[in-house]
C-alpha cells in the first residue's frame, strides 16, 4: 500500500518537475531586433574592404539554456547524446549531462543547472537546434556587430584563467543593444570556418596565414585582445568540436 503511494507520489513529483522544466524551456526566448548599421570587424572577410553593412536581424537575447536543449533532444532523438555519430560530435557532447535526457545535478555553486547556458554542443547540433526553432545561427559578422565591445572591464573573461561555470542565461547585465551574457563564454556562429582567408586563393587558404603572428597589419583594433582571441578560437574549430566553454544562441532574418 505504502509502496504504491510512494510510487504515485514519486511519479507526481516527477511529472510536476518535468512540467516546471518544460515551462522554463517553453517560454519562447525573447529576441532582440539588432538594428542595421555599418561595422568594422577586427578582421575583414573581404580583402580591401574594411567596413561592412550589416542588415537588421533578430538575435536571441540570451544563449540557449539546458532546459531548452533538453526539450529539443527529447523531440529529436537523433540528437541525443548516445545517438549522434562521431562525424557530428567528436566526443564530450553534453558530457556534463548525466544521460541522454538528464541534466547535471544541482550543486552548491549551480542551484539551477537547467537555466545555465548549454555548452559541449557541436556546430552540427547547434545548427539543428536553431533549425528546429525555424531560426538559424548568427553569421560571424552579425555576432561581432551585436557583441561589439571595447571596454576592457567587460572583456576580462577572455584573459582570466579557469573556465568558470557556464553562465546562467539571461542574468548578467545586457549590453547597449539589449543582448545578455556576451563575453562570458564562446558562441558558435554559422560561418565560423570562413574566418581568415588569404588574399591569394592559389595559396590554398592555409588556416592561420593571416592569424599567425597576429598579422596586426590587418587587424582593426590592436588593443582588442578579446576580438583576437575570438577569431583565433573560431579558426581552431571543426564543426564536430564540443567544448566546455562553447555554447550558442540563434538568430532570425527579419
Amino acid at each position: 500500500m505504502f509502496r504504491q503511494v510512494n510510487r504515485l507520489v514519486f511519479q507526481a513529483v516527477l511529472i510536476g518537475g518535468l512540467g516546471l522544466l518544460l515551462q522554463a524551456a517553453q517560454a519562447p526566448v525573447e529576441m532582440v531586433k539588432v538594428p542595421a548599421g555599418v561595422f568594422t570587424p577586427q578582421f575583414s572577410p573581404r580583402p580591401g574592404q574594411k567596413d561592412f553593412q550589416v542588415k537588421s536581424f533578430w538575435l536571441d537575447a540570451r544563449p540557449v539554456n539546458r532546459a531548452e536543449f533538453l526539450e529539443f533532444v527529447r523531440k529529436y532523438p537523433q540528437w541525443r547524446r548516445s545517438q549522434v555519430p562521431p562525424l557530428f560530435q567528436e566526443g564530450n557532447y553534453l558530457a556534463d549531462w548525466q544521460g541522454d535526457l538528464s541534466l547535471p545535478l544541482p550543486s552548491q555553486e549551480v542551484k539551477q543547472p537547467e537555466l545555465q547556458a548549454v555548452t559541449g554542443v557541436s556546430w552540427m547540433a547547434a545548427r539543428a537546434y536553431c533549425d528546429a526553432q525555424k531560426k538559424r545561427l548568427p553569421k560571424l559578422l552579425e555576432w561581432e556587430y551585436a557583441a561589439d565591445e571595447t571596454d576592457p572591464e567587460k572583456l576580462s573573461w577572455y584573459s582570466l584563467v579557469g573556465i568558470g561555470i557556464p553562465v546562467q542565461a539571461g542574468v548578467a547585465a545586457p549590453n547597449q543593444k539589449g543582448i545578455y551574457d556576451l563575453h562570458h563564454m564562446y558562441e558558435w556562429v554559422d560561418d565560423f570556418n570562413q574566418v581568415i582567408m588569404t588574399n591569394d586563393s592559389r595559396e590554398g587558404a592555409e588556416k592561420d596565414n593571416q592569424l599567425f603572428c597576429g598579422n596586426s597589419g590587418s587587424a582593426t583594433d590592436r588593443m582588442n585582445y578579446a576580438a583576437f582571441t575570438r577569431y583565433a578560437f573560431w579558426s581552431s574549430l571543426h564543426p564536430s568540436y564540443t567544448l566546455k566553454n562553447l555554447g550558442f544562441r540563434c538568430a532570425r532574418d527579419l
Partner: peptide
Amino acid sequence: ALLGVRFQPNAQGDFIH
C-alpha cells in the same frame, strides 16, 4: 565545414576558397 573547405564570396561575386 565538415571537410574544412573554406569558401567566401567577395564583393564582385567571385569566391576566395
